[in-house]
């Protein structure tokens, strides 16, 4: 069985600085995988390399066995990979409903159609309503997305990310800057909407990661120092030294 996402010898340099220094990782179908690591470890850069936001310096990224080299973000998305961003990335002037509906258009096969009316398609509108229902934003559907609260905007972004029906979902710090209640809410939401899908997330909050994910990779200075099940990673000596120790100490 081919892995949902496979990284092989992935490297990225900005000028002389090497940010990602040879990452090998294989994430199976239906796995929930977290990438953790201290600030500046290159987690977001890794995400951006996978999703075609930046080109890699060397190495390969394979989605369901297909090499993604040279593919634009929209092409990667069409191959079944969808992502959210660390800084909320939605369509602020459009309504919540429009945000979700737009994210369904491509997957429903509308492409660049100028002969269909979006209001006429029941599948499209009902699909969008369903997703609003899932992310609990039905009551906000007619507001411009830009006026929602921070947690609601994050929820909307997750909704947009999953709406297209991609089977590999990548979330970049979905709970960053949230209160505990908000975090619980978003974690519950992620659990619900990624059912049966491959999830790859970057996260800072240890509680979130250990509860939600099947496997964890620890990224330190552009290299993966450990990959494994949460308990094994937590027990790993190298990880504790590099990262968790500091983080756990900070919690106490």
């Amino acid at each position: 069985m081919t892995a949902a996402l496979e990284l092989e010898g992935l490297r990225k340099s900005f000028g002389k600085t090497e940010i990602i220094r040879g990452v090998d990782l294989s994430i199976g179908k239906g796995e929930r995988h977290a990438i953790i690591g201290p600030n500046g470890a290159g987690k977001s850069t890794l995400f951006n390399l996978i999703t075609g936001r930046f080109p890699q310096t060397s190495g390969h990224v394979r989605l369901h066995g297909h090499d993604l080299a040279g593919k634009a973000p929209f092409e990667i998305n069409r191959m079944g990979l969808s992502r959210s961003f660390q800084i909320t990335n939605i369509f602020p002037k459009m309504t919540v409903f429009e945000n979700v509906r737009c994210s369904l258009l491509w997957s429903m096969g509308y492409k660049y159609s100028f002969w269909n009316m979006v209001s006429k398609s029941r599948a499209l509108n009902e699909g969008a309503e369903e997703i609003l229902e899932q992310i609990n934003l039905t009551s906000r559907r007619d507001l411009p997305a830009g006026v929602l609260s921070y947690a609601e905007q994050r929820a909307l972004e997750i909704g947009i990310t999953i709406a297209g029906g991609a089977d590999v979902i990548m979330l970049d710090e979905p709970t960053a800057g949230m209160s505990n209640t908000e975090t619980d809410y978003i974690v519950g939401l992620i659990e619900k909407v990624t059912e049966g899908k491959t999830l790859i997330m970057v996260e800072h909050d240890m509680g979130v990661v250990f509860g939600l994910c099947d496997r964890i990779s620890v990224l330190v200075y552009g290299e993966i120092v450990a990959t494994g099940e949460p308990e094994a990673v937590r027990a790993d000596q190298a990880v504790q030294e590099a990262y968790l120790g500091a983080a756990l100490e900070a919690e106490h």
């Binding site: 973000p73 929209f74 998305n77 969808s82 939605i90 737009c102 159609s113 009316m117």
Partner: peptide
């Protein structure tokens, strides 16, 4: 139409539109 709606989306946030 879909392309008209996406014109608004691209206006607001071209990068997001790409990832859709």
């Amino acid at each position: 139409t879909p392309v008209g709606r996406m014109a608004n989306a691209v206006r607001d946030n071209p990068e997001r539109a790409q990832f859709l």
